[in-house]
């Protein structure tokens, strides 16, 4: 036990007063009475840290478990829809292929030409002063602007009389402008126009060739 004493001087007259404070607690047992002291702060801090770590760990584990559940649910959906999806892919591929085949069939229809409509007008339009020797039409398959049918119509003949040139020109115009050929023929030429040298021909008679190139008709 420790006894401490002291005196205090008053003013005016001398007065001796004795004060004693008695500490009944040992020095090493003495504690700070304030709530906020370094020890309590550090305890609170440690508890908060533990709580925060615990919360983070809990959230992570909870999230992880949820994620696992979600993945396994998605996997089940995928396992269920996978085979059906493969069938759907197969159907789509087949559709693409078959639409290609339809295009091919359409191309066959669109690339052809009704030749009776091209020959028929010749019966009416060829003047009596023109005699046709040969008519040839040759169709070729081209690929320059995509697969297409391209035709060339060649007419060889003789034009008799003084108007031979005009008659050939008129016939050429028929191939250029007659409704049966319009939109189908892209170019008409007369690559040959010469004197007719066959026996019996007059000086004014001419041999000619008219060549009509048809517009390419595409397969696709």
């Amino acid at each position: 036990m420790e006894v401490r004493g002291g005196n205090r001087r008053g003013t005016g007259h001398l007065r001796r007063v004795m004060n004693y404070r008695v500490d009944l607690i040992l020095a090493e047992e003495q504690r700070n009475a304030t709530v906020l002291n370094p020890r309590s702060i550090s305890r609170i801090a440690i508890m908060l840290l533990v709580l925060v770590i615990g919360y983070v760990v809990f959230r992570s584990v909870y999230g992880f478990v949820n994620l696992q559940r979600e993945v396994s649910w998605l996997q089940e959906r995928w396992d269920g829809s996978g085979p059906m999806s493969q069938k759907a892919t197969q159907v789509r591929d087949a559709l693409t292929l078959n639409l290609g085949t339809m295009d091919e069939l359409k191309g066959w229809k669109e690339s052809r030409l009704d030749w009776h409509t091209q020959i028929q007008p010749l019966e009416q339009v060829v003047p009596v002063t023109i005699q046709l020797f040969t008519l040839t039409m040759q169709q070729t398959l081209t690929t320059e602007t995509g697969p297409a049918r391209s035709a060339l119509l060649i007419v060889d003949g003789r034009s008799v009389g003084e108007q031979a040139g005009e008659n050939v020109e008129r016939l050429k115009n028929v191939f250029e402008t007659a409704p049966a050929y319009s939109g189908l023929v892209k170019r008409v030429e007369v690559p040959m126009f010469t004197a007719d040298t066959t026996p019996g021909a007059s000086k004014a008679d001419r041999r000619f060739r008219i060549q009509s190139a048809y517009t390419e008709r595409h397969f696709r």
Partner: peptide, 10 residues
């Protein structure tokens, strides 16, 4: 609708 005359010679 698919048949096609590919050459004519007269």
């Amino acid at each position: 609708p698919y048949v096609c005359v590919s050459a004519i010679s007269i």
